[in-house]
Amino acid sequence: MDMPADFDRLLLFEHAIRAAEVTYAKNPLDAQNLTKWGAALLELSSFRNIHESKALIKEAISKLEEALSIQPNNHEALWCMGNAQTSYAFMTHDKDEAKGYFDSAYNFFQKAVDEDPGNELYQKSFQVAAKAPELHSEFLRQNLSQQAMASGVGAGSSTSSNARGPKPQDSSDLKYDICGWIILAVAIVVWAGFAKANVPLPPPK
């Protein structure tokens, strides 16, 4: 993992959120600003533990809902909402609850494609959304498998534990493997949006 690059991304998203808050105070009806705010919150969630991540994603969903209440056909907001719903679903262990978020994500991606049919990123998101529940099931199976291995290893020798035992970060790493393309794609939107708006980015450290 490239830690300096990750730190720069963290600064970018924190700066983007602060800039969005300032813009919102001046114009709460700016749907594009609300979309960028929601996208930045979604990105920031990738740097937090699961409980903080879920809270940030919920906040992102709230900002995107606000954007869509102002501009229902905003394809960027629709697409970001699909990503937020998908990300939250992958952090939800209850299959029925997760399915609700996956279904919602599928609908938002469909609407984004309808609004901007030539956008290949939207099309890819829509295609992958259909497979998301299956990926989620695999995610849960691997979590259970890791827990079983940890229990079995705990009863074995310390040598076996060092050789075979899963690390605590494993489930988190798997989550990022599954959702990595989402996070990267939303980052591109955040960068592009703030570049267009000529918002100064934080200086590199």
Rank of each mutant, 00 (worst) to 15 (best):
S172K: 09
G154C: 08
P166F: 10
E138Q: 03
R141P: 02
I178Q: 04
S158P: 02
Q146P: 05
G152L: 09
A163W: 00
I178N: 04
Y176M: 11
T159R: 11
H136Q: 02
M149E: 09
A155I: 11
D170I: 12
G152K: 07
D177F: 15
S157Y: 10
L135F: 01
L144I: 07
G152S: 09
L140V: 11
N162G: 09
S145D: 14
S158Q: 02
Q147S: 06
P166D: 03
E134L: 11
L135R: 00
D173I: 14
A150G: 02
K167A: 08
Y176I: 12
Q146E: 15
G156I: 08
N143M: 05
A163Y: 05
P168D: 06
Q142E: 06
D177P: 08
G165S: 15
Y176L: 15
R141F: 05
K175F: 15
F139S: 02
G154E: 12
L174K: 07
Q169P: 03
A163P: 00
D173S: 03
S137W: 03
Q146A: 15
H136P: 00
N143T: 10
V153N: 09
Q142G: 06
S160P: 01
M149V: 10
K167T: 02
Q147E: 09
K167N: 01
L135D: 00
T159Y: 06
G165M: 14
A150R: 06
A148M: 06
A155P: 06
G156H: 13
A163S: 05
S137N: 04
Q147D: 02
A150E: 13
V153Y: 11
I178P: 08
T159C: 02
H136K: 00
P166W: 03
S160C: 06
G154V: 05
S161N: 03
G156E: 12
S137P: 01
V153P: 01
L140D: 07
S161F: 07
E138Y: 00
S157M: 06
K175S: 08
K175R: 14
S158H: 01
A155S: 10
H136V: 03
L144T: 10
N143C: 03
Y176W: 05
S161E: 05
Q169E: 15
G154Y: 07
S161G: 09
P166K: 05
P166N: 07
S158W: 04
D170H: 11
N162P: 04
N143H: 05
K167G: 02
S160Y: 12
F139V: 01
D173E: 06
A155L: 15
S137D: 12
M149H: 03
L174F: 09
Y176H: 14
S160R: 03
A163L: 01
Q169F: 13
D173T: 06
G165E: 13
N162Q: 14
I178K: 07
M149I: 09
K175H: 11
V153H: 04
E134T: 14
S171H: 14
G154L: 09
R164T: 11
Q147K: 03
A148D: 12
S151C: 01
R141D: 11
S160H: 07
